[in-house]
Simulated scan of single mutants.
Amino acid sequence: MGKDDKEETGFGFKDRAKAEDTLRLLEQHDMNYRRLTVTGLLRRAKRVLTMTKAEDKIKNIKEAMEVFENWLADLNKDKTDKDEKRTEKKETKVEKNGDDKESSSDEEMEERPAKRDLPADKVPNLGFKDVDAARNTLKELEGRDPDYQQLAVKGLIGSAKRVLTCTRDETKLSNIKEAISVLEKFLDDFDSLHLSKQNNPYLSLGIVRTAAKLAGDNVTDQQKSFIAAYASVNGEYKRLRTVKAEGSDKTWDIVRNSVLKELKEKHAEAKLFSEKDEPTSEHLQLLLWAYSPEQAKVKKVVSETKEEKNEGESRKRRSSARDEESSKKKKE
Rank of each mutant, 00 (worst) to 15 (best):
T165R: 13
T22C: 02
L260V: 05
V301C: 03
K297N: 01
S204V: 08
S274D: 12
S181F: 07
T9V: 03
S105C: 06
K271I: 14
V208S: 08
E236G: 00
D191S: 08
L195W: 00
N70V: 13
E324C: 11
V94Y: 10
T167N: 10
Q150E: 12
Y237T: 04
S314A: 13
T280P: 00
K266R: 12
K177R: 10
A245Q: 04
S225E: 03
N234T: 08
K57G: 04
S258K: 09
A73M: 09
R162N: 15
L141P: 10
V301D: 01
K177C: 03
R44E: 15
N76A: 14
E55Y: 01
S159F: 03
M51C: 11
R35Q: 13
V219I: 03
D130Q: 05
W289T: 05
L36R: 13
Y33L: 07
S232V: 02
E84W: 10
K101Q: 11
T37V: 14
G127C: 09
S105R: 15
D132W: 02
G40P: 02
K18D: 09
K62A: 03
I157M: 07
R241D: 11
K276A: 15
I180T: 07
R16M: 12
A231Q: 09
N310Q: 13
S225G: 02
I157W: 06
V255I: 14
P124C: 11
F226Q: 00
Q222W: 00
E265K: 14
D4S: 13
N175A: 07
S204K: 10
L214R: 07
E108V: 01
Y202D: 06
L287A: 01
R239T: 02
D253S: 13
A64T: 04
R322Y: 02
D169Y: 03
L288N: 09
S225Y: 00
T22F: 00
K261F: 06
A54P: 04
L187V: 01
A133P: 00
G2E: 04
G40A: 12
K89S: 11
G98Y: 10
R144D: 15
E66R: 13
A228S: 08
K139D: 14
V94N: 06
W71P: 06
Y230M: 02
V255Q: 01
R116Q: 12
E66N: 09
R86I: 14
K224S: 08
